[in-house]
Amino acid sequence: MKYCGKVVVTLKPGVFDPQGMTIKNALHTLSYQEVEEVETGKYFRIILKAVTKEEAERRVQEMCERLLANPVIERYTFEVEEFR
């Protein structure tokens, strides 16, 4: 069975995000004055083989902890669904 894991990695609250800040300023320049906050992050789409959805989730979580996110400064969320 194939599964698709979608992972989003963002900076922890309180960790400075100069890209987000620059993009927010650019949006203000474009007259989107209502913008209060912009947070940047990374998106990963991972297609993997697994016997069950639980196994796929466990593997994706392991990937997040070992490589995709740096726990000192980042946090992650993910979802796994069947891939066809």
């Binding site: 400075f16 100069p18 890209q19 800040m21 400064i73």
Partner: peptide, 9 residues
Amino acid sequence: GALLPNRNG
């Protein structure tokens, strides 16, 4: 620790 992008980007 970790290293982030410079404050001034």
